[in-house]
Amino acid sequence: MSVTLIFKIAAVGILVSILSQVLKHSGREEQAFLVSFAGLILVLGWILPYIYELFLTIQRLFAL
């Protein structure tokens, strides 16, 4: 995992939290939830290959 991925995740977290707070204060709580959900899906899409690689490594390690 590279450092740039960590910075991307941090940037998405900061942007999502700011947008979510702005939308909540303007009374658009449904859109705030959707922004948070979209950020979560985006980050999960980025880290999913690393999780898959981790499970493959564990499987090879224990020869399952």
Rank of each mutant, 00 (worst) to 15 (best):
residue 35 V to M: 06
residue 11 A to Y: 05
residue 33 F to H: 14
residue 21 Q to E: 12
residue 32 A to Y: 03
residue 11 A to I: 04
residue 15 L to A: 13
residue 44 L to Y: 06
residue 24 K to N: 09
residue 38 A to W: 03
residue 52 Y to D: 08
residue 62 F to G: 04
residue 31 Q to Y: 09
residue 34 L to S: 10
residue 57 T to H: 13
residue 52 Y to Q: 12
residue 46 W to E: 10
residue 59 Q to L: 13
residue 55 F to L: 15
residue 8 K to V: 10
residue 7 F to E: 10
residue 34 L to V: 08
residue 60 R to P: 06
residue 29 E to M: 10
residue 20 S to F: 04
residue 34 L to N: 14
residue 46 W to H: 05
residue 31 Q to N: 09
residue 22 V to L: 15
residue 37 F to I: 07
residue 45 G to T: 02
residue 29 E to W: 07
residue 38 A to R: 03
residue 24 K to W: 02
residue 55 F to C: 09
residue 59 Q to T: 11
residue 2 S to I: 00
residue 58 I to L: 15
residue 46 W to R: 02
residue 12 V to R: 08
residue 38 A to D: 04
residue 19 L to C: 12
residue 41 I to K: 07
residue 59 Q to D: 13
residue 39 G to M: 02
residue 44 L to Q: 03
residue 41 I to W: 08
residue 5 L to C: 01
residue 62 F to T: 12
residue 21 Q to M: 12
residue 60 R to M: 10
residue 45 G to C: 01
residue 54 L to G: 09
residue 27 G to T: 03
residue 36 S to E: 11
residue 55 F to G: 08
residue 28 R to L: 12
residue 54 L to S: 10
residue 36 S to I: 00
residue 46 W to K: 05
residue 57 T to Q: 14
residue 56 L to H: 11
residue 64 L to S: 13
residue 21 Q to S: 12
residue 10 A to T: 05
residue 53 E to C: 00
residue 60 R to C: 03
residue 13 G to D: 04
residue 37 F to W: 14
residue 27 G to P: 03
residue 57 T to N: 14
residue 20 S to P: 00
residue 3 V to T: 10
residue 6 I to R: 09
residue 6 I to V: 10
residue 19 L to R: 01
residue 41 I to G: 09
residue 59 Q to K: 15
residue 63 A to C: 04
residue 16 V to F: 00
residue 5 L to F: 00
